[in-house]
Amino acid sequence: MTTAALDLDASPAEAPPADRKQRRNLTPWLLLLPGLLWLVLFFLVPILTSVSASVQTGNFDDGFKLTWHWSNYWAGDGTQGGALKSYWHQYLHSGIYSVATTVFCLGLGYPVAYFIAFKGGKWKSLLMALVIVPSFTSFLIRTIAWKTILADHGVVVSVLNHLGVLDVTRALGITVGDHVLASPGAVVCGMVYNFLPFTILPLYTSLEKIDPRLHEAGNDLYCSTFQTWRRITLPLSMPGVIGGTLLTFIPAIGDYINAQLLGNPNTSVVGQSIENLFLRQTNGYPVGSAMSVVMMVGTLALVMLYIRKAGTEDLI
């Protein structure tokens, strides 16, 4: 009887009150509330505003009205073309430059990250600092610096001319004439320099987690260095590859500073056209917003397709 009485006395105390259970259920939502408010105010509202502006008509002086003018996405209003019909060259340039930048950053960044992760030793922190420190300088200043590096009478262009490299790049349409500035090649060079740390950091994080003893096991099984990398290192570093390419491609496809400072009128990208429509045309808001929506939806579709095809579950 004593034990039963104790159990009966303890059971009401062990059962949590209804209000305590309710507070426990609300705690996760209260913790999420600041982040949700931030996303709503600075992510969802601007997106909805852009979508709404993309189907409006009017001008800056008289105001814009929501008229569901879907032709802004194709034909425009007569004074300037639609987002897709008249600016497809800019979309093409943005896509080509961003893909080229991503490929070059991966090709340059993977060996650097590999060396730091497995060969850096006690110098790992210093080497990673050398990768990150240039990013502390203004993006604009770093891009302008490439105008000096690629100047017509500079060392780089002189060496390329002497080696005959410019003859090949000119034939491929990468450079124009005997200079590198004001060409697609200069735009990609600037973008690769600016976005390379975004590729190296995820790659290094992924490679640094790999146990070096796996490489020793590959050697014990008579695998060559390349076979060990292909069968062990590369598969284990795929989350870093996927993350690095995404962190490079997404900002690169929206970048227009490099094209504006290092390119020419024939290398214009979407960002330049949007800036021109918003700042230099009184009735350019709707078409500029339509271009922004198309760019956003297209980038999202490409990223989702890439993640799906890559098959990595670490990013989902």
Rank of each mutant, 00 (worst) to 15 (best):
T267H: 08
T225M: 10
D9E: 15
S11H: 14
A15N: 15
A151F: 11
V293L: 06
A117K: 00
A15K: 14
R308H: 14
H89R: 05
L181C: 11
Q272R: 02
L203T: 08
G185F: 14
L315W: 14
M291V: 10
L92P: 01
I132S: 02
S50V: 14
I200P: 09
S50T: 12
L277R: 11
L30V: 05
Q90S: 00
K21V: 14
A129F: 03
L247V: 04
A129I: 04
G109V: 04
H93S: 04
L41R: 03
L214Q: 13
I316H: 06
A301F: 04
F195S: 12
F64D: 09
G240Y: 02
G107Q: 02
S158I: 06
F136R: 01
I253D: 05
S50E: 06
A75D: 07
V287H: 08
L44T: 10
N72E: 13
K124I: 09
N194P: 01
P197G: 08
L246E: 01
F226I: 07
A310Q: 11
L8I: 14
V287D: 02
D211P: 06
N219A: 13
T312R: 07
K119P: 03
R142Q: 02
R231Q: 11
P28S: 08
T245H: 00
L279D: 03
I174C: 12
G254Y: 03
G78Q: 15
H69Y: 15
I96W: 09
F198G: 11
S94T: 07
N219Y: 12
A100L: 12
N72W: 01
Y222W: 15
L44G: 09
Y193C: 06
P286A: 03
Y110H: 03
L201D: 01
L214E: 06
A5W: 15
N25R: 15
I274L: 06
A310W: 00
P212Y: 01
V165I: 11
I307S: 09
V133G: 00
S50G: 12
A83N: 13
L26T: 10
R231G: 15
P197C: 04
A252E: 10
T102C: 03
L127A: 06
H69W: 15
W74V: 06
T228Q: 03
T67G: 10
I307A: 01
D19R: 15
S50Y: 11
A182E: 12
I316F: 07
G244K: 10
S50I: 11
L163S: 11
W88A: 10
G81R: 05
L262A: 01
L201N: 13
W29H: 08
D152H: 08
L8M: 14
L163K: 06
W38P: 06
G190W: 08
A117I: 00
V168I: 14
V180F: 11
L221R: 09
C105D: 12
N72I: 06
N283H: 14
S50W: 05
R230S: 02
V294T: 13
I174D: 08
R231A: 14
